[in-house]
């Protein structure tokens, strides 16, 4: 964390751009020759704007949350601070991406019974053949894969975050690790009926989809190592056991029985564009852009999932994107002098 803070502080110093900390943008609207920005600390007029406010400003909670009995405490990752602040009793974690698996593990370690509702997920080992899996993503060029070379960009942009956790032990935190700790997996939460949570019976399939996709990813890494003569630099190829399906999974859970005291919604995040008074959102509230060039003159975006590359949302990954987006921005300024 300290390293990241230092990195950003140094970046601010090197660029020399004025940084206004603690300043919220409350409105951005178009003018004849650019944009008018209203902030908590005054007005700004500008010719171009780069929206880099991120993709995770608000937690997403499914509509069925409204049908959960009032006796159960509901939290989003934004409200969650630690296991000690939760009421006594069992926890139902909804979602098994990075946030869900990390919170489920932490809550289980605190001694609570934990159930995790699992839909489609991205399984990844923390280390593969002796290297961090992110080393492989980078070295093999997968992270550099461009947005205009991806078959199903829509799906790539909606991909859940991989089941990874950063720990000194570099432990893998997949569903096998969670079930070994005593966390109980159930299927995707489909509905609430008569005070009961109903879970999908398709758990086996989301497990095999995740296993198959991980296998394909590891095959890609192996092929890259072989092709580039890197087999000697890394440990031998390895494969991981398939996700274990419990002998019987529960299809429903009585939310009024007291078994579950808390529900943690780890069901994803979305950007917050309530301050954006420019008609550049699609029918689902997403920013309309082509590789970061937003559908409004002089308006740009950075740091969104697969904006221009698979690595677009990483601090390290933004460099190439920024260069290309700023090239376009400079061209816009030159053309509209």
């Amino acid at each position: 964390m300290a390293e990241v803070t230092e990195f950003i502080e140094r970046f601010a110093k090197v660029t020399g751009a004025p940084v206004r900390t603690g300043t919220n943008v409350t409105s951005l609207r178009p003018t004849d020759d650019g944009y008018h920005v209203t902030t908590g600390g005054g007005e700004i007029r500008c010719r171009t704007v780069v929206i880099a406010s991120g993709a995770c400003n608000r937690p997403t909670v499914p509509r069925l949350a409204a049908a959960v009995p009032a006796s159960i405490r509901q939290l989003t990752p934004f409200d969650y601070r630690g296991p000690t602040e939760l009421p006594d009793g069992g926890v139902l974690v909804v979602g098994a991406s990075a946030t869900g698996v990390q919170l489920a593990a932490e809550l289980r370690r605190s001694g609570r019974p934990v159930t995790i509702s699992v839909g489609e997920q991205v399984r990844m080992p923390r280390t593969y053949r002796g290297r961090d899996v992110l080393w492989w993503m980078d070295a093999s060029g997968l992270w550099d894969q461009r947005y205009d070379r991806i078959d199903d960009l829509e799906r790539a942009r909606r991909l859940p975050s991989p089941q990874l956790v950063g720990t000194p032990e570099r432990a893998t935190l997949d569903l096998n690790a969670l079930t070994a700790m005593g966390v109980e997996p159930v299927g995707r939460w489909a509905a609430v009926r008569d005070g009961r949570a109903l879970f999908s019976g398709g758990l086996r399939n989301v497990f095999s989809l995740a296993d198959l996709k991980m296998e394909r990813l590891l095959d890609t890494f192996d092929a890259w190592a072989r092709r580039n003569g890197r087999d000697a630099d890394v440990a031998p190829s390895e494969r991981f056991p398939p996700t274990r399906v419990p002998a019987s999974t529960r299809l429903q859970l009585d939310l009024r029985s007291g078994e579950i005291a808390t529900i943690v919604w780890a069901t994803g995040f979305r950007p917050d564009y309530r301050w954006l008074d420019v008609p550049v959102l699609d029918e689902k509230g997403r920013l309309r852009h082509e590789g970061g060039v937003v559908d409004g003159p002089g308006l740009y975006a950075l740091g969104l999932p697969v904006l221009r590359r698979r690595k677009s949302t990483f601090i390290y990954g933004i460099e190439d994107d920024a260069r290309e987006v700023v090239d376009h921005l400079a061209g816009h300024l030159a053309a509209h002098r």
Partner: peptide, 8 residues
């Protein structure tokens, strides 16, 4: 049909 059978 898989969806109709596995989800309410």
């Amino acid at each position: 049909v898989f969806d109709a059978l596995t989800n309410p």
